[in-house]
Nucleic acid binder design. Structure first.
Lengths: 158, 158
DNA sequence: GTCTAATTGAAAATGAATTTCAATTTCCTT
DNA sequence: AAGGAAATTGAAATTCATTTTCAATTAGAC
């Protein structure tokens, strides 16, 4: 099993690299690079965690009070389309975004007390999922797996 | 692996039994049995499939035009609290309800073309989930697992 | 620099879920 | 069986995240 644990912000090198990727995506699509998109992408990649548009907006408007919620919202959608972020909806029904690098598919452990989100990947489970699908003649394209419970910290402090 | 396949409505015997269970739940909580609750519960149990409040309402108002959406909505919440139904939210972000009998925990295969929902249970996967959680010192209380892709029918007709 | 198309941000719109409230119904008490 | 307190009902209003609209601004190709 591959253990990721909690996310942390990425290094400057990766961030720069990703921002380049965003730029080429924009150019390719005939879209424009703007100060707002640049700042929002930077902040998003630095935070690294699963954030809602609202959370990211609040963070950004501390530094740049002229950037509106709508732009943050639209930029996250854009990052999603460009392959730099994924959208996730957990049990609280809020849409969260997380930076996505290459092929790092993973699932989540979600603490129902403190809300912390931990990532993991388990190839054995994935193989079994494929097998289950096969038995139904089902062709699985993606999956969603979340475990809800108490994280180590909350369990110990109970 | 236990295969459930698609749900079908339940037999009259089970339905009557469940409606008794609802009645005792209501009595116990100091709530009232009403014509509406009775009809909504019947219809819900007969349909058997995963339905949204909206869908169930549309079905019911064909027969009983005096029953409002709000009551259907509230009755589904009630069935949930009484343990006769579970709430589920899939990728389309709509809240669906399904009849729940005793301990039949299961997961879902969801067709991204026709929307059909198939149920399955796989104990091996569940054991692995527990193991993953353990490695993080995480105490899992529940989980959610959905596989999205093409069902046999849609795959074959492609 | 000019011009066109894209972007921005505030405000409005959307849509599912939930709450409000006056009228009605249940069912406990007598 | 009638009275009355409390729960229920249904329509309409509200909430809240998400998404769209639109006029003003900006990017960047020529």
């Amino acid at each position: 099993m591959k253990i990721f644990g909690r996310r942390t912000g990425e290094g400057i090198k990766q961030i720069t690299q990703k921002k380049e990727k965003l730029k080429s995506f924009l150019k390719e699509k005939g879209l424009k690079s703007t100060r707002q998109r640049d700042l929002i992408a930077s902040e998003f990649l630095q935070i690294g965690e699963h954030v809602t548009a609202e959370e990211l907006y609040r963070e950004i408007s501390k530094k740049y009070s002229d950037i509106g919620f709508t732009t943050v919202y639209r930029t996250l959608k854009l990052l999603n389309k460009s392959g730099l972020a994924t959208e996730r909806v957990f049990a609280d029904n809020l849409t969260r975004y997380e930076p996505l690098s290459a092929e790092d598919h993973h699932d989540h452990l979600i603490c129902i007390k403190c809300g912390s989100i931990t990532e993991f990947q388990d190839l054995k489970i994935e193989r079994l999922q494929t097998r289950v699908a096969d038995e139904f003649g089902f062709h699985a394209m993606s999956h969603k797996m979340e475990l809800y419970g108490y994280c180590k910290k909350c369990k110990d402090n109970a």
